[in-house]
């Protein structure tokens, strides 16, 4: 009962975060527009890969250009979700520690991890990602002649949700080092580069990299597994892993978060 009440309270507060961020971002109209334009350029750069693959027209490790399109489309949608829900919060964690805003948040009767890691929602950046990504997935889906019943689409969406949870846990983890090293610009660069491993299907990498990226640093699970499931290429172990790993990583991140917090030394007044 207590847990349910707390969950409802946090959901209500999240609703207010969404509203506040929307109001705040619309306040700066030009910035809103420029952000969209900037992300359009990035998205176009990623599209160049797709154009290249279609022009060459060969299969890579048994994947046709249409398959690759499905992978890249999913990767774009997931990038959109990362930017929408997490990017600003994760980038700002080290700023909050430096400015002492974390102190203020710490005294509020809500989950601090919730408050710090989910407070900002970025509405402008992910728009191009969502539009282009979804178009690519729909196009590839049709060309490949994949089943498109409610069951298939439902499973795909469920795996996207699992991917979002996993993405949160996995990419928050390195940011928690801010508690120790304070400035995290270099860390942000590295994690961003790791994310780009998903830019292409995991099938193009060697077996070892695939294993590491699935079990040790499960970044491939985020964008590759929903597509592999649609292609019916997930074995039993992978099918269990895709649901288990978000929970495992969430628990690990929670533990590390608590540990870091107990060592927190606060900024100067």
């Amino acid at each position: 009962m207590y847990l349910l009440r707390e969950m409802l309270k946090h959901m209500r507060i999240y609703g207010l975060f969404v509203k506040n961020c929307l109001i705040a971002q619309m306040e700066y109209r030009m910035n809103f527009v420029i952000s969209i334009a900037q992300e359009c350029v990035f998205t176009f750069a990623k599209l160049l890969y797709v154009i290249l693959i279609y022009q060459v027209g060969v299969d890579i490790n048994g994947l046709s250009p249409d398959h690759v399109l499905l992978f890249i489309g999913t990767y774009m949608i997931m990038t959109g979700f990362y930017v929408l829900f997490f990017m600003d919060n994760f980038y700002q964690l080290s700023q909050h520690i430096q400015s002492g805003l974390l102190d203020v948040m710490m005294t509020k009767p809500v989950s601090l991890q919730f408050m710090v890691t989910l407070r900002r929602i970025n509405f402008s950046f992910p728009i191009p990602n969502f539009i282009v990504g979804t178009s690519m997935v729909v196009m590839a889906w049709r060309r490949l002649g994949l089943e498109s019943g409610p069951q298939e689409i439902g499973l795909f969406l469920l795996l996207i949700v699992c991917g979002i949870v996993l993405m949160y846990a996995l990419f928050l983890l390195p940011m928690l080092l801010s508690f120790y090293i304070i400035k995290t610009q270099s860390l942000i660069e590295i994690t961003d580069k790791f994310w780009d491993f998903n830019n292409m299907p995991m099938g193009i990498y060697s077996r070892w990299i695939q294993r590491i990226g699935t079990f040790l640093l499960p970044i491939f699970v985020i964008t590759n597994f929903p597509v592999l499931a649609m292609m019916d290429e997930l074995d039993t172990l992978a099918s269990i892993w895709v649901f288990a790993v978000p929970i495992v990583m969430l628990l690990v991140t929670r533990k590390v978060w608590r540990f870091c917090l107990s060592k927190y030394s606060s900024a100067s007044s």
């Binding site: 506040n20 109001i23 705040a24 306040e27 700066y28 400015s99 002492g100 805003l101 102190d103 203020v104 007044s269």
Partner: peptide, 9 residues
């Protein structure tokens, strides 16, 4: 020296 208010709202 620390604010809990949302700057843009």
């Amino acid at each position: 020296q620390k604010s809990q208010l949302w700057w843009d709202l």
